[in-house]
Simulated scan of single mutants.
Amino acid sequence: MEKLPLWLTELEDADIAFIKQFLLASGSLKQVAKVYQISYPTVRARLDQLIEKIMASENKTDERYINLIRRLAIEEKIDFDAANLLIHAYRKEKEDG
């Protein structure tokens, strides 16, 4: 049996459910909006967030801390400016240490 790609294993259950609905709707964001009873722009934003998550997992570094910060920013638990500050501070500390 073929191993699942890394990006797929890192998605949450809600992400997988969204992807399933997207596929069942043949990629129609309007149909997905109807299923979830939310607006088209909300569905579009959710899809953009998933794309960012997948891209981030494909561009993984070996540093777990940086990956955690990126994931938190993509999931909107922290803003991108704060994420960049934390990553730059971490890298500077590592260089100086």
Rank of each mutant, 00 (worst) to 15 (best):
M1C: 05
M1W: 01
K3R: 15
K3L: 14
K3C: 11
L4Q: 15
L4S: 15
W7D: 00
T9R: 14
T9V: 11
T9A: 12
E10K: 14
E10H: 08
L11Q: 04
L11D: 02
E12Q: 13
E12N: 09
A14S: 12
D15L: 04
A17C: 01
F18T: 00
F18K: 00
F18M: 01
I19W: 03
I19M: 12
I19Q: 01
K20T: 07
F22W: 12
F22N: 00
L24R: 11
A25C: 13
A25K: 04
A25L: 02
A25T: 06
S26N: 08
S26E: 10
G27M: 03
G27Q: 01
L29G: 02
L29N: 07
K30A: 13
K30Q: 07
K30I: 06
Q31D: 03
Q31W: 00
A33M: 05
A33N: 06
A33Q: 03
A33L: 05
K34A: 03
K34R: 05
V35L: 06
Y36L: 10
Y36V: 00
Q37F: 09
I38N: 08
I38M: 14
S39F: 06
S39Q: 13
S39V: 04
Y40H: 10
Y40I: 08
P41M: 08
P41H: 07
T42V: 12
T42N: 15
T42Q: 15
V43R: 10
V43Q: 10
R44P: 06
R44K: 15
R44M: 13
R44G: 09
R44E: 14
A45H: 11
R46D: 05
R46P: 10
D48P: 01
D48I: 00
I51P: 00
I51W: 04
I51A: 04
E52K: 14
I54K: 02
I54Y: 05
M55L: 10
M55S: 09
A56E: 12
A56Q: 11
S57Q: 14
E58F: 10
E58N: 09
N59A: 09
N59T: 06
N59L: 05
D62Y: 13
E63I: 13
R64D: 12
R64W: 09
Y65F: 13
Y65V: 06
Y65T: 02
I66H: 02
I66N: 02
N67Q: 15
L68E: 06
L68T: 07
I69E: 09
I69M: 12
I69Y: 05
I69C: 10
R70T: 09
R71H: 11
L72Q: 09
I74F: 10
E76R: 12
E76P: 00
K77I: 01
I78F: 10
I78N: 00
F80L: 01
D81P: 01
A82I: 03
A83E: 00
N84C: 05
L86M: 15
L86R: 14
I87V: 10
I87A: 01
I87K: 05
H88A: 12
A89G: 01
A89N: 11
Y90D: 00
R91Q: 15
E93D: 11
K94G: 11
E95T: 08
E95Q: 12
E95F: 02
G97D: 09
G97C: 11
